[in-house]
Simulated scan of single mutants.
Amino acid sequence: MKDEWAKNLSPDTVIVIAEGAGQELILPSDKSNKNRPDAASDDLFHDVGLWLSLKIKDHFARSKKMAINLKYIDPTYMIRAIPSNASDNVFCTLLAQSAVHGAMAGYTGFTVGPVNGRNCYIPFHLINEGQKRVMITDRMWARLLSSTHQPSFVNPLHITEEAKA
């Protein structure tokens, strides 16, 4: 595999890989190649995320031009910690369709998310810009608490004061 992809990495890079993607890149003799069953089928997929993280570490170890701090996270069980409901399925479908639409339109370096009730393309550089606040008086927060069955630990007096502000 050529290391051309490494030239495009910025100092702060997040790489997200879909489960089961990149199977053709992994050689059967690769030691990092661990099979794991896919949740949706009985097929065994190689862990391409682990394989890619090892390739990136190898690349930077060989080049010795830059020290890296690479974190590999497999969020499979974190994501599947709570059963999805119909609202989750609809919301994720809309986000996925918007992301594909943006990619097919030629946009790169963006994510899709709700902004003022509409799905919008959000450039990556804006995601980390400034401090974000969660509005605990918003419907989205109430829906989150309701769908995840989490209790609200917020004092009702604080909600009233925040709503006034």
Rank of each mutant, 00 (worst) to 15 (best):
Asp38Tyr: 04
Met78His: 07
Gly20His: 04
Ser87His: 09
Ser98Gly: 15
Ile79Phe: 11
Asp138Asn: 13
Leu44Asp: 05
Ile17Leu: 10
Asp138Leu: 03
Ile73Phe: 11
Met140Leu: 11
His158Ser: 13
Ala6Asp: 01
Val154Asp: 03
Asp38Glu: 05
Gly22Cys: 05
Asp138Phe: 11
Arg143Lys: 08
Val14Trp: 01
Leu126Ser: 13
Trp141Val: 04
Gly106Glu: 08
Lys34Glu: 01
Arg139Glu: 13
Met135Lys: 06
Trp51Tyr: 15
Lys2Gln: 06
Glu161Val: 10
Ile73Cys: 08
Ala99Arg: 03
Ile17Ser: 02
Ile26Pro: 00
Ser98Pro: 02
Asn69Lys: 14
Arg139Ala: 14
Trp51Leu: 07
Ser152Tyr: 06
Ala6Ser: 10
Val14Thr: 07
Ala165Cys: 05
Lys164His: 12
Ile127Ala: 14
Asp47Val: 02
Ile17Gly: 00
Ser87Glu: 14
Asp58Val: 01
Phe45Pro: 00
Val112His: 01
Ile136Pro: 01
Leu144Gln: 07
Cys120Ser: 10
Val112Phe: 01
Ala81Ile: 06
His149Thr: 08
Pro11Trp: 00
Pro28Glu: 08
Pro156Phe: 07
Leu157Thr: 11
Leu44Ser: 06
Tyr121Cys: 10
Met140Ser: 14
Ser41Trp: 04
Ile159Lys: 14
Asp43Val: 04
Ile79Glu: 10
Ile68Met: 08
Ala6Glu: 02
Pro28Lys: 03
Glu19Trp: 00
Ile15Pro: 05
Ala96Trp: 01
Arg133Asp: 14
Val112Gln: 04
Asp138Lys: 04
